[in-house]
């Protein structure tokens, strides 16, 4: 868990707006919730105001297990975009397949970036990067 550091966090933050606000409200409570269409039952990602399968807007925010497996990853060794990432080099950006299906683009933290293996079990970790924003990241399953 990273302490709140509003004001000093220089990296990009998600744009929170009414469509996605429930997702970010959940992460702030350290819950991973995604939308399940109550018409066709599709669990969807990314967060969207509509179901990509049936276009319904009817939804419930389902609490997920936070368990997943490492599908693929890179270790970023040079910050070529926003220079604020330099302090994190080298860092892991990963595709994580959630137990419930959807695949997230996220970070794997709290481990040696060069120690990862395909398919390794992961669990969610919530990173409170500011007072308002908590990011969903993963660490090796305990």
């Amino acid at each position: 868990m990273v302490a709140s550091r509003t004001g000093s966090y220089k990296k990009p933050l998600p744009v929170i707006h009414p469509d996605n606000a429930p997702y970010w409200a959940a992460t702030k409570k350290h819950e991973l919730r995604l939308q399940r269409c109550t018409d066709c039952k599709t669990l969807r990602y990314p967060v969207s105001p509509v179901c990509w399968k049936c276009l319904s807007e009817a939804v419930e925010w389902e609490l997920l297990s936070g368990k997943g497996t490492l599908r693929s990853w890179i270790v970023v060794e040079a910050a070529t975009g926003n220079p604020a990432w330099s302090e994190d080099i080298p860092y892991v950006v990963a595709l994580v397949d959630l137990e419930e299906g959807p695949r997230l683009t996220t970070n794997v933290v709290q481990t040696d970036p060069y120690s990862l293996t395909y398919g390794m079990p992961l669990e969610v970790v919530f990173d409170d990067v500011t007072d308002e924003v908590t990011l969903v990241k993963f660490k090796p399953a305990s």
Binding site: K11, P12, L13, P14, V15, D19, N20, P46, V47, S48, S72, W73, I74, V76, T80, G81, N82, W85, D88, Y91, V93, L95, T105, T106, N107, L135, K137
Partner: peptide, 30 residues
């Protein structure tokens, strides 16, 4: 890369995947 669906090369800026190159290296890795 700040859209809810992310960038066209798969970017998601707030997870440090904020350039087309880094995002495409994930394609290359796969």
């Amino acid at each position: 890369g700040l859209r809810d669906a992310g960038g066209g090369q798969g970017q998601l800026d707030y997870h440090g995947l904020d350039t087309p190159g880094a995002a495409t290296s994930l394609v290359a890795r796969n």
